[in-house]
Design a protein around this nucleic acid. Structure first.
Length: 127
RNA sequence: GGUUCAAAGCGGAUGGUCGCUUGGGUCGGAAUACGACCCGAGAGGAAAGUCCGAACGCCUCUAUCGGCAAGCAAUUAUAGACAGGCUAAAAAUUAAGAAUUUCUUGGUUUUUAGAGGUCUCGUUUGUCUGAAAGGUAAGGGGUAGCGGGUAAUACCCGCCGUUGCAUUGGUAACAAUGUAAAAGGGAAAGUGGCACAGAGACUAUACUAACGAGGAUUUUUCCUCGCCAAAGGUGAAAAGUGUAUGAAGGUCUUAUAUAUGGGCUAUCAUACUCGAUUGGCAGCAAUGCCAAAACGUGCCAAACCCUGCCUGGCGCAAGAGCAAUGUUUUCCGACUUUUUAGUCAGGAAUUCAGAAAGUUAGCUCGCAAAGAUCGGCGCAGUGAUGUGACCGACAAGAUAAAUGACCAUCUCCUCGUUUUUAAUUUAAAAACGGGUAGACGAAAUUCGGCUUAUAGCUUUGAGCGAAAC
RNA sequence: GCCCCUAUAGUUUAAUGGAUAAAAUAUCAGGCUUCGAACCUGAGGAUGGGAGUUCGAUUCUCUCUGGGGGCA
C-alpha cells in the first residue's frame, strides 16, 4: 500500500481525469493518464496552483466484470499496489500526473513478475 | 484393512526485509495541527447468501392506557376512612391577678363533639408525554400437532401421530417390530376444482350384454315393455370401512315328474378390522388402551376460505451534528469590455457581488470496552439447555475501502527415481530430487439462527464387502 | 452495506394446475426470379438448476444461480 497522499480518491479528481485524460492500452492493463500542467484553467480555485501542479495521484480500478469473486479482484489490486509502492519509493515516476490503472479480463491469474513488466511498459509509454 | 453414508472437530507454524490501518507512550513543536522514534493489536468457519429473529435508531397513529386541566354527575353515598389545622366542652398541668381550703383570665397536653376539607365510584372535552402506559376494533401481513429450552412466533431438543421402505404374522382387510423423511390446525362449516378416458368424478345410475313377455321377420336381426344395478371397461381415484362365515329372499341356470343342487347378490345376523362418536382408565399434553351402540363421511386448503395465536412502519445509505464549498437555474445590483446602432435610450453576452431554489460532493459522531459473550470443570436434565461467592479467555475497525508483497525453514499433502522386505500384478518402509499449504471464500452497526460452498486431515456410529495375508 | 423486482424459442411477448407449451420476428430448406429483395410453402429451435405439494407443475412452495433496480 502506498502512502495516503498519493491515492486518487476524490470524485472531483476522477471527473477531471476522465474529461481531459489520455488513454494508453496494454496487454492486460489499461492506463488513463492526465498531465496536470496542460490544464491550468480547470484547477479548483481553492487550491494553490503551484502545489496542485506537482502532485502525483494514482488510482486502481478492478470492476465486477473482471471476476465475480472478491478474492481475485482484491489480489489483483494488491499486486498492482505493491509494484507501484516500490516504484514510488525509488522515484521512478515523474510527478505532476493523475494515473488510473484499469484491469482487463485477461489479468486474472497473472503472476507478480508479469504485472511488474506490464506496468514498467506502460510507464515507459508516458512520454 | 478397504469403501459408502451420517454426525462432530480442525481449516498450518516460526522467522526475515520493505509497507498499510489503528491504540498508547516519549521527544520536537505555541498547538488537540504536523513530524520522528518505541511498544502493542490487526479476517472466517462459513466473514458469503441476505432467508428468518432481535438489539439499537428514527418516523407515524390515538377509538385503548397514563399524566395534567376544565366541565358534568354522584341512588351500595342521608355511607365509610383520614394526617395536620379551626370551633366548642370536659379533664390534667402551668403562669399571672384577686382573694386565701377558693375564683377569674391566658398557655400547653389529652379526650369527646361539630363545621369544613381530602380520598373511595364514574363520565365528557381539551392537551402533553408515550411503541418498555397501549397494541385493542377494522384492514393488511405472518404463523399452525403436544411438551420443553431460548431474549425470541427465529432456531433447537424430546415425544405423539402420519407416510415411505424392510422383516415377521394373517385367507384377507390389517397388525407388530425396526428404520428413514417431512411447511403436521380444519375437507364431519361454506364455495370451488378433479383434464383425457369412462355409464358415472359427488343428490351418478345413461350404455353394452343377459333373462322373461309381446310384436315384426324364413333365419340372422330389429323394436316396445318388464326384470335389474349383479357383470363390463376407463382412470391417479369408482359410490361409501373392509374381510370372512351363515340365514332367508330375489334372479339366472343344470339335471329332474317334483323335492333338491349350483352361480351372483340388494338385505339381515355373527365375528374380526379401519375411522369417527360417547363413556371409563393412563398420561402435564398431543395421544394411547378398553367398552358400547341408534354411526359410515372420496381427494385437494404449498385453491379460495374458516378457526386459534402473533403483529405499527422503515432500516446504520437508520439517524445526530458541523461546515457552508463546487455546480445549475432564476431574480436583483454594479461597472469594464464586446455586439446591435449615425447618436442617445434600450436589448443581448461576459465578469464580479448578493439572495432564493435544486443538485452533487465533504467532515465528525453513530463505530469498536465486557456482555441475552465464549470455553473448561462440577451439579441438574433423555436432550436442547440451565446453573455456580469455581477456573480461565476476549481491546480488528477500513471508507476508490487497511490486515499486504517477496523470501527462508519446518511439518501436512502430492509426483518421480532408487534401495530393502514380502513378492506375478502389487503393497509397506527408508533415502534422494521436484511441486509446495495448494479447497471454499475475505470484515463494512452488532448479536442469535438457518441455508449454501469447501482440498485435505482426525474421531465416532451405521451399512456394504468378502479381494490380499 | 441495506432493501426490492425478475427469469418461457436467437429476440420480443402469450398460455385458468391438464393432452404434443402459442404467436410475431430471426435462422435453415424449397419455390418464384437471369440474380437478389419482397412474396409463397415447409422445417428445426425454449419453461435458469435442484427439491417438495399434487394423480398431474411454465403455473403453487422452498432453495441455489443469473440479470436488473432503488436507498446519502
Amino acid at each position: 500500500m502506498f502512502p495516503k497522499e498519493n491515492r486518487l480518491t476524490k470524485i472531483r479528481d476522477f471527473n477531471l481525469l476522465f474529461k481531459h485524460g489520455v488513454y494508453i492500452s496494454g496487454q492486460f492493463l489499461d492506463l488513463k493518464l492526465l498531465k496536470l500542467a496542460k490544464i491550468p484553467d480547470y484547477f479548483p480555485k481553492k487550491e494553490d496552483p503551484a502545489a496542485f501542479k506537482n502532485q502525483l495521484l494514482i488510482g486502481i480500478s478492478v470492476g465486477v466484470k473482471i471476476s465475480k469473486k472478491a478474492v481475485l479482484r482484491n489480489k489483483i489490486k494488491r499486486q498492482i499496489r505493491e509494484i507501484l509502492r516500490l516504484s514510488l519509493k525509488k522515484n521512478e515516476i515523474m510527478s505532476g500526473y493523475y494515473l488510473l490503472f484499469i484491469a482487463k479480463k485477461e489479468a486474472v491469474g497473472k503472476e507478480y513478475g508479469e504485472f511488474e513488466k506490464e506496468i514498467k511498459n506502460l510507464l515507459g509509454k508516458i512520454r
